[in-house]
Design a protein around this nucleic acid. Structure first.
Lengths: 205, 205
DNA sequence: CGAGAATAGGACATCAATGTCTCAAAATTC
DNA sequence: GAATTTTGAGACATTGATGTCCTATTCTCG
């Protein structure tokens, strides 16, 4: 036929298990896009795929090669956020048995994935389908258990409700994440600053 | 010229002071559109002008006749929300001098304008330009003063921080407003239910 | 270096939301 | 009930986001 004699492979997006069998480069690109989506959408969920491609320092073509349509990127970002959050929780809890240490580790770990937290929880309607039933309770039960124990140990003020501590926990995470996004706070100092603020305000004197 | 002999007036939108010099009908239509915008945008700020026209039971033409573009409706809705909120606060404070009565009245009044609260405050980035400086503090200072006085009177639990009470105040308002929007709670019972829940949880035993 | 892998960039079609305009019908008022 | 006001409905142009496709260029790794 009239085909050119040179090779004409234009590399197509992979199938569902793409993330499993990808080369190192593609894994890094995929991660960059997901990170960009998380940080941009955490601040404004109406942001454009163009905005996300920019944030990920990738062309829009490349973005579409990895995530054919908007929804698939939303789903992947959601999964990535949940995975990051769970991983950070596990890491923190296994940092020792002392409640105060665990709480501190959990705060720093959560600040590290602050964008994931904001992306997932900021707008209750965004992923309302996921949090129905007891899932919302379960998500916080581990943190609540640690907080209660820390209060019993005298490491955290016991004259406020655990819920108040938990609300403060997330308030600090939110503020830290926004400051990092704004560039007002260097990422490597975020955990330390958040911890200092949290315990300086709530730690037993 | 070639003009038809019959009258050809197609009534145009009015100028900036339209709301001042309007007839009763137009005032009611304008209010219906603003109410629709508030209730729809409180739940989802990305909602379409079509959605708002539907909610207001008005055609899209009519909506555009009153608010030429999206931004002008957003601005008008914002102004209406602020006015409603301030008016409800004034009404509640002047309901007596007893702190508990004032707090109860303020809660019921705020539930009445729940959509305005959600529309204005739900997404801190939405109207970030308004709340810069001390305005955010001032907006809550009156409520905080009443709460503190109610705690001193023994009408509200004093072993929690005033901020926690204020957070609960808005949490109850949010929940009530959403329930009314969902149809799960009749509007005329919202104030009563909110008040009962709020004081049943926080009132001194 | 050279083949294969990956990306950038842009042309293009599509779609949904926005905004404009016109006319007919309904509602209101006198 | 006639004049005036107001609305509903739809046709239309515009715009921005999305999604597809093709090609040249760059990168990576043996």
């Amino acid at each position: 036929m009239s085909q050119n004699s040179t090779r004409m492979f234009y590399y197509e997006p992979r199938g569902y298990d793409a993330a499993m069998t990808e080369t190192g480069i593609r894994q890094r690109t995929r991660k960059a896009i997901l990170d960009g989506a998380l940080s941009v959408w955490a601040r404004d969920f109406t942001a454009t795929l163009h905005d996300i491609a920019d944030a990920a320092e990738v062309s829009r073509s490349t973005l579409h090669r990895y995530f054919p349509d908007r929804q698939s990127l939303v789903d992947a970002a959601k999964d990535a956020a949940i995975a990051a959050l769970e991983e950070s929780g596990v890491r923190a809890v296994s940092s020792g048995s002392d409640a105060a240490d665990q709480l501190d580790a959990m705060l720093r770990a959560t600040v590290d994935v602050g964008n994931a937290v904001i992306f997932l929880f900021f707008d209750p309607n965004r992923f309302a389908d996921i949090w129905e039933g007891d899932d919302a309770e379960d998500a916080h039960s581990e943190l609540r258990e640690i907080v209660t124990r820390a209060q019993a140990d005298g490491a955290v003020a016991a004259d406020v409700a655990p819920d108040w501590v938990i609300n403060m926990f997330y308030a600090v995470v939110y503020t830290a994440a926004e400051s990092v996004n704004d560039g007002a706070l260097p990422r490597h100092r975020a955990g330390e600053v958040a911890s200092r603020t949290f315990f300086g305000g709530l730690g037993a004197r």
